[in-house]
């Protein structure tokens, strides 16, 4: 097994912005490694740093300092091997479910019949068969995120970034979607980097949890979670880890 192989590496990443003529540090000297096929959760309080780190990995913004390596090679800007599930406004409202999911292959120039086939496979995988012709505005929040996940998978990325994908969902839907993501991840093993501020969600999903500090973000601790899946949220070990991480988490302001 090469599951210990390093897939993605962040080296001394820093990011800052100028806000009202003052330098605002969003992330300071973040270094971490993401292993091949693992489910890594970036856990942090508030809204600081996590999304920014993800955006830098995705190539949506450039770090002020530091380097990002994918399979040992430095990457600059967006890379086809990296896919992303966004927090909100994830879907293009002018495209149907099918058209949204086939977007990646279409951009790559995959012929229509072939990309429809790929898209259908992932629409089925996320359980949305029958909704291919629906527009996003006709779907519920949970269904929209399913489409978003299917779209990311349909592009066949090696690394999948998920930016608090369930933050806007109600608790019930959220639990269901966490189970779904786990099921999909087990069916289609990819490296996943999942951002959340919810400790329980992190513990439920992660192989490893990278705990980030409050602003500016830096790596506070890394936890290996070796609990068997699917995880039992009232298992004593689960609760112990939950308390340990909770005690170590900065308060969000």
């Amino acid at each position: 097994m090469d599951s210990q192989k390093v897939k993605l590496k962040l080296e001394h990443i820093s990011q800052s912005y100028i806000v009202k003529n003052q330098v605002f540090d969003a992330a300071v000297d973040v270094s971490m490694e993401v292993r091949d096929s693992e489910f890594l959760v970036l856990l942090g309080p508030g809204r600081c740093g996590k999304t920014i780190l993800l955006n830098m990995i995705a190539g949506l913004e450039k770090p002020v300092d530091g380097k990002i390596y994918l399979d040992g090679e430095e990457i600059n800007g967006s890379d086809e091997r990296i896919g992303m599930v966004f927090q909100k406004r994830a879907l293009m409202p002018w495209k149907t479910v099918m058209q949204n999911v086939e977007f990646g292959p279409k951009i790559k120039g995959v012929p229509k019949e072939q990309r429809r086939e790929i898209a259908q496979k992932y629409i089925d995988l996320v359980g949305l068969q029958g909704f291919e012709k629906s527009y996003p505005d006709e779907l519920s929040g949970g269904m929209k995120q399913r489409v978003s996940i299917a779209r990311a998978y349909a592009n066949n990325p090696e690394i999948l970034l998920m930016d608090e994908p369930f933050g806007a969902l109600d608790a019930q839907t959220r639990y269901a979607m966490e189970e779904e993501v786990q099921r999909i991840w087990q069916a289609e093993k990819r490296t996943v980097i999942f951002v959340t501020n919810n400790i329980e969600e992190a513990l439920y999903l992660a192989d490893r949890i990278v705990l980030l500090s409050n602003c500016p973000a830096h790596v506070k601790a890394v936890y290996d979670i070796n609990l068997p899946r699917p995880r039992d949220t009232i298992d004593p070990e689960f609760l112990r880890l939950r308390k340990e991480i909770s005690d170590n988490t900065d308060l969000a302001l």
Binding site: G59, L60, F86, F103, I107, K108
Partner: peptide
């Protein structure tokens, strides 16, 4: 947010415009 989707999927300038 919509343009970000294009960036993530590596759309070129023309695809960004038309899609």
């Amino acid at each position: 947010e919509y343009m970000d989707i294009g960036t993530i999927f590596h759309a070129n300038e023309w695809q960004m415009l038309t899609e």
